[in-house]
């Protein structure tokens, strides 16, 4: 498994690198193998994902990012700075590592909400005002993320 990670990292290096002489390619190979060697092969249980759902999820998330970016821009530029920051404890029925990673990163990517702490079944989320966390509290994010992963029996 580590050798695949090393090859993938080396290809990434080759794509991003602008100079293809011996010294740069050697440095890339050394760094790729070191990263894959020192990364612990942890017990990360990732369930199978449905790529069709991912195709729908990415544009949806980008639309959310656009919408809440305009909202946060308006808050910042507003003379009265009408923010109401608070920490909310969000209960979720998602428990697997993969689901929590996607949910937490989606929340953080959307301006106006940031994941502070993650535990199976519960997230601590900081939100800049009431309307930013509306869709999180009513469970829209949870529903969208749970559709990305195939049911437990399918793995």
């Amino acid at each position: 498994m580590r050798i695949f990670a090393a090859i993938a990292l080396f290809v990434l290096w080759l794509v991003l690198s602008a100079s293809y002489n011996l010294i740069h390619i050697t440095i890339g190979a050394i760094i790729a193998s070191m990263i894959s060697w020192f990364t612990p092969a942890g017990p990360l249980h990732v369930r199978r994902i449905s790529w069709l759902a991912v195709l729908g999820y990415v544009p949806w998330l980008f639309g959310r990012i656009l919408k809440s970016s305009f909202h946060v821009s308006r808050l910042i530029l507003h003379p009265g700075l009408p923010i109401a920051p608070e920490l909310i404890h969000h209960k979720t029925q998602l428990t697997s590592d993969g689901e929590l990673v996607v949910l937490g990163n989606s929340i953080t990517l959307t301006p106006g909400t940031i994941t502070v702490e993650v535990a199976p079944g519960e997230l601590v989320v900081h939100t800049i005002d009431k309307s930013s966390c509306k869709d999180l509290v009513n469970g829209l994010y949870d529903a969208k993320v749970s559709h990305l992963f195939l049911a437990k029996g399918d793995q």
Binding site: I65, L66, S69, V72, S73, I76, L81, I83, P85, T108, L109, T110, P111, G112, T113, I114, V116, H126, I128
Partner: peptide, 19 residues
């Protein structure tokens, strides 16, 4: 510059990052 604490400032930062 305008927002009061580290948590709110991170929201402005994610605006910079994402868009």
């Amino acid at each position: 510059l305008r927002l009061p604490d580290v948590f709110s400032r991170a929201h402005a930062l994610s605006l910079t990052d994402s868009l």
